[in-house]
Structure formats: structure tokens, C-alpha cells
């Protein structure tokens, strides 16, 4: 869905929507995303009242239950600042599905205004902040798994790659069938565990076959799925676990002088 998107000029302030998965399991990824933006001289606001984008209920068909959650997010980001989201999946929910959630309802206009302000982290770094990265890390081989929502709904697969390609010591390797889904799919992985397992097995194998030392993804759902499988099944070159990281953590770690 590569509709030409209008990007604003570099703002003074942005909101950061951390996502519930990052909040609970990968907070360092959220923090890294915020630090990357802050380093570019933009003030990052993290409203403490944010919770979840509502996607789990939405994708399970519980639309009324979704609305209450959506309204909480909309209330929580009242100012006209861009809203940056370190996940293609949640960004897709906020940007493309919120208007559907309220289609034909009185709040539709309000929701539309909110959705227009939503950006996935990598597209924001590349297209709005025009970030320039300097790699301070050791040479490494990296495989990138771009979430389906990041690729198809948000159209930011190129932005993911562009950021990694800015890193001089990072060799980006390409796994077979790289655009194929990893089998996460939110509640799908729980409702249809066997199909999900078959999918993630293939994905883990394809990544392992590249000889990559690290796996990077812009979405923690995929990451949790793939690395969880690799650890459980001992998939990896000579059974050395491939380290999985959110792209924000990876970028921050390799470009932040204090950490490297």
C-alpha cells in the first residue's frame, strides 16, 4: 500500500506511543526509540495514560470493546503533535483502522484527525527527521524481518532497510521468502497454534540459513515469535542463538557513544 504520504517538516515536539507489548516485554526498545528522536533535537512526550492500541479486540471481532480503548488513546494525545509508534502493526491500527472503528459514528472526524498524525518509527526517522547514523559497532551480519503490517499496511519496508544500510559495519543479509509472514498474527498464534508453529519454523530456518548473527525487526510481536521459537528449538548456526532486537534498540546501541 505505497500511497504517496505527506510528511511534515521536523517538529519541535512529538508524542510517543510505546505499544503495550513493548511496555510489558521490550521497554528498552521503546526507550531507544525515544532516545533516537530526542538526539535529533526533538522533545519527546510520553503520555502516561496510554495503554494499548486496541488491535487484539479489533482483530477478534469485538468492535464495541475496541472503541472504549481507542477513545482512551485519542484522549491521551490531545495536542497537534505527530504520534510516533515503534511498531508497524500498532501504527497500522492507529493510522488505518481507527477510522474504520468509528466509521459512521459521531467521533469519526476526531478519530480521522488523530490518525493523520500517526507515523511508524522508521518512517519518521527517515522521512521526517532525515536522520543520519554513524555506526560505532563491530562488524556484524544482520537479517531483517519486516512485519507484514509494516510492509503492506504502512509501506515502510524500504525505511527499515535504509536505516540499516546507513550502518557501515552492518552487513544486511536477505533470507529466503523474506516477505512471507512469520506466523504471529496476534490472536492467530493462540487460536491456530499448529499453523502458526509451521510458519515460524520455516521463518526461523530461513533466517538461520543466512548465517546472520542478529535478527532485527521493527515489530516486537514478530520478534517474540521468531526468537521464542529459535530459543525453544535451538535453531541457529551451530545452535548459537541468533540475537533478536527491535530495530530501535539495535540502532541506538550501535550509534550511541555511551553504549558502544
Amino acid at each position: 500500500m505505497s500511497l504517496a504520504k505527506h510528511y511534515p517538516d521536523k517538529p519541535d515536539k512529538v508524542y510517543f506511543f510505546g505499544t503495550c507489548l513493548i511496555d510489558l516485554l521490550y521497554p528498552e526498545a521503546g526507550l531507544a526509540g525515544m532516545q533516537l528522536i530526542k538526539r535529533e533535537g526533538v522533545q519527546v512526550i510520553f503520555p502516561q495514560d496510554q495503554t494499548c492500541c486496541g488491535q487484539p479486540a479489533w482483530n477478534s471481532g469485538y468492535r464495541d470493546e475496541t472503541r472504549a480503548v481507542v477513545l482512551n488513546q485519542i484522549r491521551t494525545f490531545p495536542q497537534d503533535y505527530p504520534i510516533v509508534v515503534p511498531s508497524g502493526s500498532c501504527a497500522g491500527m492507529l493510522r488505518h483502522h481507527y477510522p474504520e472503528v468509528f466509521k459512521g459514528l459521531p467521533e469519526a472526524g476526531l478519530v480521522e484527525d488523530f490518525s493523520q498524525r500517526v507515523f511508524e518509527l522508521t518512517e519518521f526517522l527517515v522521512n521526517v527527521l532525515k536522520i543520519e547514523l554513524q555506526d560505532l559497532g563491530e562488524p556484524t551480519k544482520v537479517a531483517l524481518h519486516t512485519a507484514c503490517s509494516a510492509r503492506r499496511e504502512m509501506g515502510v519496508a524500504d525505511e527499515h532497510e535504509a536505516l540499516l544500510r546507513q550502518l557501515g559495519n552492518v552487513q544486511l543479509v536477505e533470507q529466503a521468502r523474506k516477505a512471507e509472514c512469520c506466523g504471529f498474527g496476534g490472536t492467530f498464534a493462540v487460536k491456530h497454534p499448529d499453523i502458526s508453529a509451521a510458519m515460524v519454523a520455516d521463518k526461523a530456518q530461513a533466517i538461520s540459513d543466512t548465517g546472520a548473527e542478529q535478527l532485527v525487526s521493527g515489530d516486537c510481536g514478530c520478534l517474540m515469535n521468531i526468537t521464542g521459537y529459535m530459543q525453544h528449538q535451538d535453531v541457529g548456526p551451530q545452535n548459537h542463538h541468533i540475537r533478536g532486537q527491535h530495530i530501535a534498540s539495535f540502532l541506538w546501541e550501535r550509534t550511541n557513544a555511551a553504549e558502544s
Binding site: 507484514c148 516477505a179 512471507e180 509472514c181 506466523g183 498474527g185 492467530f188 487460536k191
Partner: peptide, 8 residues
């Protein structure tokens, strides 16, 4: 329900 909604 037997779809990840991957969009392919």
C-alpha cells in the same frame, strides 16, 4: 480466523 491478516 485462520489468517494472520498478513495482507499478501
Amino acid at each position: 480466523t485462520a489468517s494472520t491478516l498478513c495482507g499478501a
